[in-house]
């Protein structure tokens, strides 16, 4: 089992890590760094609960190897709020009660964040399309979609 030394910026902090070849980015975040916002829902890139930003793009962190992020930048749900100041998206999720069990929420917020960054004024259809890879069993999605719309109206992610 080969080990690799990598340097990766996670939520603005530079981290120097030793990771085995087969370790996923999700495992690295959760087990090496104790960053547990990204969740493991399927280990197969199908549920979106582990979504993080990799150089600004949303990825399923269970489908990325830790060695691949050497020299790159990762942002998880923990990296959205700065000094306790919630983002407009996080505020909108609270305002609309878009959260129930909360297990899909970290991935939802990241996918929505990425959407609003590339498309600040998405249509309802575009929001649904952007979130189609993030499964939620509690909310019926309707509040989540409304929350993204509200955040967009208030000027982006």
């Amino acid at each position: 089992m080969g080990m690799h030394s990598i340097t990766v910026t996670v939520n603005g902090e530079k981290e120097y890590l030793e990771v085995p070849s087969h370790m996923t980015l999700l495992q690295m975040l959760r087990e090496k760094l104790a960053i547990t916002g990204p969740k493991n829902g399927c280990s197969a890139g199908e549920c979106g609960a582990c979504t993080v930003l990799l150089d600004g793009e949303p990825v399923n962190s269970c489908m990325v190897l830790a060695v691949e992020v050497d020299g790159h930048e990762v942002v998880t749900v923990e990296g959205l709020a700065k000094e306790g100041q919630l983002t407009p998206l996080q505020q909108a999720f609270i305002e609309h009660n878009a959260v129930q069990c909360g297990f899909c929420t970290p991935g939802m917020l990241i996918s929505a964040e990425a959407l609003l960054k590339r498309n600040p004024h998405p249509t309802e259809e575009e929001i649904k399309e952007a979130l189609v890879g993030n499964l939620c069993r509690c909310t019926g999605y309707i509040r989540i979609i409304r929350a993204v719309q509200t955040a967009a109206e208030k000027g982006g992610a």
Partner: peptide
């Protein structure tokens, strides 16, 4: 507002695997 919502939107809510 829900009592659990701040934790849940910031990723600090702890689940069994965390």
């Amino acid at each position: 507002p829900r009592v659990d919502v701040f934790e849940k939107v910031t990723g600090s809510a702890i689940y069994a695997d965390d």
